[in-house]
Structures are given as structure tokens and as C-alpha cells.
């Protein structure tokens, strides 16, 4: 781990850029990943079987985990050189996340869930602009008429649409999606994957999707296979 604190912060041309990464858990699990570079609007599918380390890679890109070897730069800044608070701020303001189990808050309605990031970090200000963007995104993902609906009254597909709107509401430069179609019917998988690709691209965000689902790989700029076999 190189102590490389100062970084060209103006280098926004590259939402995320890594050298070859090595990550190891105490359990003995080890992940090795080739260098990744993503341009704004670019997309990468990370493919591999369960337990191959796809989620771990996303964790390294979001700054939740730090690599044992190698570097992750976001907007030119070295994540490992940032403190915990700075990495949380980075995650809150520059990264949008979508999860397999949707991870919506049951006590909040559709619009409130979409705006949740603004209530979690001081660097994000919940203003009229944020609300307008949330409504616009919900309209774009087809939930314009369900903004006040309770989460438990939504279908799985609708829940993931809320999650996509939430991931994009902060205008992130990088969107990380961990098995975003894993809990969906086959017919919905491609629809949601396409929506994710389209919206991330439209928002100018780089998209990294971890999946073991071959059927959705078609629209991605690049596919990175991890976990040895493929």
C-alpha cells in the first residue's frame, strides 16, 4: 500500500481506475483482479459463480473494503489514502448502489426511499432540486404514479426500479450493482438490466454490475470474468 495521499482531484474523466488488485480475508479467501478502467457512461459486467468475489470487488470499488495490494482511484483520488469519513463521503456522494435484495427501507415510501441518501450524509443536501430529480427518475423508471406507495405494496420489479432511482438520485459518477437481477423473474431480468444500463449511461455514470446471469451480459461494454473458471 503506497502512501500516495495527494491525487489529481480534477481528473474526473475517469470515475474509477484500478491497478491489479489483491484482496485477502482472514478465512483464506483470496481475490485477484486485473486492472479496471471505466470512462463516464461506460459499463462493465463482472461475471463469476457465487463466492467468486464479485461482491468483494464491488466493495473495493466503493471504498468499503481496501485492497491488500494494488490501488483504486476514483475521480483520480486514491481511496486507500482517504480516511474512513472521506471514503464514506465518497460513497455517499459519488457512488450509487443497487443490491440483489433491493435493500429498501420498509418504513419509508417510494419517494422517501429514493431520497434516503440525502438523509444519511451531510455532504448531500435535500433540497427542491433533489426532490425534483427523484420525481423525474421515478417517472423515468415507470413509478411516477406510485411515489407515495409503501414498499411492501410493490412488486419485486418495482422495488428494483426504486433502487435504481435511488442509486442515481445523487448524480453519482459510478454505479455499482450487485446481482441486481438475482431476485427477479427471467422476463424481468433483461428489462431491469437494460433500464440500469440506459439510466446509468444517460446520467453519465460508469456502471459496474456483478452477476452470474449470462442472459443480461449483452448490453455491457466489457465483461470481466473472475473466479478462475471462465
Amino acid at each position: 500500500m503506497q502512501p500516495q495521499a495527494q491525487a489529481p482531484a480534477s481528473d474526473l474523466a475517469c470515475p474509477v481506475e484500478t491497478t491489479a488488485l489483491v484482496f485477502r480475508r482472514e478465512t483464506g479467501f483470496e481475490l485477484r483482479v486485473a486492472p479496471i478502467t471505466l470512462a463516464p457512461g461506460g459499463s462493465l459486467a463482472v461475471r463469476g459463480p457465487s463466492g467468486s468475489g464479485k461482491s468483494t470487488l464491488l466493495g473495493l470499488l466503493s471504498g468499503e473494503l481496501l485492497p491488500l495490494e494494488g490501488e483504486v482511484r476514483a475521480g483520480g483520488r486514491l481511496l486507500s489514502a482517504m480516511g474512513d469519513a472521506a471514503r464514506r463521503a465518497y460513497r455517499a456522494t459519488r457512488v450509487g448502489q443497487v443490491f440483489q435484495t433491493f435493500e429498501l427501507v420498509a418504513s419509508l415510501d417510494v419517494l422517501e426511499n429514493t431520497l434516503l441518501p440525502f438523509r444519511l450524509h451531510a455532504a448531500l443536501v435535500l433540497d427542491d432540486d433533489a426532490r425534483a430529480r427523484a420525481r423525474e427518475l421515478l417517472a423515468r423508471v415507470g413509478l411516477g404514479d406510485k411515489t407515495t406507495r409503501a414498499i411492501d405494496r410493490l412488486s419485486h420489479g418495482e422495488r428494483q426500479r426504486v433502487a435504481i432511482a435511488r442509486a442515481l438520485v445523487t448524480r453519482p459518477s459510478l454505479v455499482l450493482a450487485d446481482e441486481p437481477t438475482g431476485n427477479l423473474d427471467p422476463a424481468l431480468k433483461r428489462e431491469i438490466a437494460a433500464l440500469l444500463l440506459e439510466e446509468a449511461k444517460g446520467a453519465g455514470a460508469a456502471l459496474v454490475v456483478a452477476t452470474h446471469d449470462e442472459s443480461i451480459l449483452g448490453g455491457f461494454d466489457r465483461v470481466l470474468a473472475i473466479g478462475g473458471d471462465a
Partner: peptide, 16 residues
């Protein structure tokens, strides 16, 4: 726990 973990994953500090 899931909900609270989510908040942290989305960037909330432990204090928050």
C-alpha cells in the same frame, strides 16, 4: 440490522 447496514453502505457514519 440489514436496514442499519444499508445506511452505512450508502455512506452514513456510525454517528448518523
Amino acid at each position: 440490522a440489514d436496514e442499519l447496514a444499508l445506511m452505512e453502505r450508502l455512506g452514513a457514519s456510525r454517528a448518523r
